[in-house]
Every structure is written in structure tokens, then in C-alpha cells.
Amino acid sequence: MASSAPAPGNKEEKDHWTTEAYQNAASFVPKLATKIVQWLDPQKDDRILDIGCGDGVLDIEFAEIVSQGQGHLHGVDSSPALVQAAQKATREKGVEGKATFEVLDANELISKAGELQSQRFNKAFSNAAMHWILRPAEKREGFFRGVREALAPGAVFAFEMGGLGNVSEIRAALLMAAGRRIGLDRAQAVDPWFFPDEVWIRDIMEQQVGGWRVDRIEREWRPTTADVGGVVAWVRIMAAQFIEALPEAERESFVKEVVDVLEIVCAKPGGGFMYSYVRLRVLATRI
């Protein structure tokens, strides 16, 4: 997949994403996807569906592989800005003939499953997008059904997302600062992330939805150094839903309060800042 950009929750939401802002705040996301890409093991004849494809960084890599054979890459993301960036990136690398992109809320996959399956995907992939996609509890089963129905039997789904405990220090600072202004219930309602554990993944895929076999799963603490934009850039883009839920007059004081706390908690002794990322990786087969 590409820069695994977190997609907005539905088509009506404001598109918070630009490739410039994302690269300033979280360019490390695709760079640290080595392990899940190894689990996917892309080959030249694979037809890969990338869910939450982002701005095209990993899609270039995949398109270069499938350009050596009969494969194809199709990326979907609900951010029009990031889909345009992915199209541009693959065009500039000369692999646009092997990669197509579509603006699509991943929770709507089920409505397009038949059309997608006609492309005979044998692999699906997602990196750092599903903790946004799965936020609405009522759509979680439908998402896994949509991915399942887009794939042929025996196809694999390799994904990495935030796992239980991900960015706990950041999330606590956001909820506390927002809760003081709009109440904790409201702050929790606008929290845009869902970070599950291994037990939850196995249950929803194998039991609640069915048709999946989880072959491999792990949850790893991966301390991650802040990007060039520092803590403030991360907060402004990743926590935009918190900011926009506040009265406009309180937004900058909220950002300052959160950043001031995190620059203490996340400070590295040698300079810079560290986020406590926890990654949940899964390799599953459609049965």
C-alpha cells in the first residue's frame, strides 16, 4: 500500500489530509512497514487490493513488482487528496499502467465487493489505516465481510494497524484536554481511533464474520521518533477531529496544552520526541 494514510470516517467528513502535511507529521509510517510487507510477500503476478492506500509511497514499490509480470495494484482511500497524490506518484515513476486508485470509504467495500472480486484479487493489504476505518463499531463486521467478498477463496489479507495501547500517552492528553472543555463523553465520541488486541481480531474474523482463518498475529511495541514537524504537526493532523469538536475560540489553547504536556512526556534525552506506537499485525486467509 502507499503511505497508509488514515482515512476519514465517512464520505461526508472533511478531508483533513494533504500529502505535505502527512509527510511532515508521519512520513515514518510507510518506512516502518517492512515487516507487514514481508508478510504480504508481493509477487509479480499478484493482484493486490490496498485498503487505505494513502499517498502512494508503498504502492510504487508494489507496482514496480507487478510490472514485471501480469499483476496489478488497486488502491482505495477515502481522502481525495491522497488518492490524487498516489496517482501522481505512480505516474512519475512510470508504473501507472500497473496501478489504479479509487476514492472509496473502506466501510463501503461490501457494496462494491462483486465489482472488486471481478478483478480477481489474490491479496489484500492495509497499513496504518484500519484503526481509523474500524472506529464506528456498527461497521466493523461489514468491513471484514467486504474484504472477504472482494477476494477469491484462498486469498490472503495482510494488515497492520494500531493495537491496544497505541499512542496511549497522546490519547490520554487529548482526552483530558478535550474533556475539560466539552466533557469526557463528547471527547470520547470524537476520538477517531480503535485499537484492538489479538483476541478481538480472531473473534471478529473467525467467529463473528467467518470465512477467515487467522494464520499469524502479533502485537509489538514500536517506539517511534517524531517526524520533522514534531509533536505539534502530529497533533494538528492526526487529532483534527478533537480540534474541530471544540469551540473555535478554544482550539489553539487546546493544541498548546496537549503539545506542552507531550513535549515533556515524549521527550528523548538526546533530543527529539518518541511516540509509543503499538502495532498489531495479522496475516489471514479467506477460506
Results as ranks from 00 to 15, higher is better:
T19P: 11
F62G: 01
Y275E: 06
T100I: 02
R181Y: 05
E160R: 02
V66P: 12
A26K: 00
W193L: 07
A226P: 07
F194T: 02
T285W: 01
D46L: 07
M274G: 04
V37T: 10
Q208H: 11
C266V: 09
F125S: 12
A172W: 09
A128I: 01
V83I: 15
V66Q: 01
G69P: 13
C266F: 10
K112M: 01
I170W: 11
L134D: 00
E96F: 12
K98D: 10
I204K: 03
K268R: 15
R148H: 02
D45R: 10
D260K: 13
R202D: 07
W193K: 03
R181P: 11
E263V: 11
F125H: 14
A128T: 07
A187T: 09
M205D: 02
K256H: 13
V209Y: 08
T19Q: 08
P6C: 13
F159I: 01
G142T: 01
K256S: 14
G211H: 06
E248N: 08
K256F: 11
T225G: 06
E257A: 15
V235E: 03
F125P: 11
R120M: 05
G230T: 04
G162M: 02
A5C: 14
Q119V: 07
K112G: 03
T224M: 13
T18K: 10
S78Y: 00
E20Y: 08
P6K: 12
A284I: 07
R135L: 09
K31A: 10
A233G: 05
G162K: 08
M176S: 15
H72A: 12
E263W: 10
A85F: 04
Q70S: 15
M274D: 13
N10L: 06
K35Y: 09
N166G: 05
M205V: 05
E108F: 00
P247R: 07
V57N: 03
A99M: 07
L246Q: 05
L73R: 09
V199R: 09
R219S: 12
Q43C: 04
I36C: 01
A2T: 06
Y275Q: 06
A129S: 15
D77K: 08
I237S: 02
A249R: 12
S3C: 11
L151I: 09
I110L: 14
D185V: 14
A113Y: 00
E115F: 06
P153Y: 01
I243F: 05
V83S: 03
S27V: 14
V235T: 08
Q68W: 03
K93P: 02
L283S: 10
V235S: 05
D185H: 12
W221I: 11
P269I: 09
D77L: 09
K31H: 10
A177L: 04
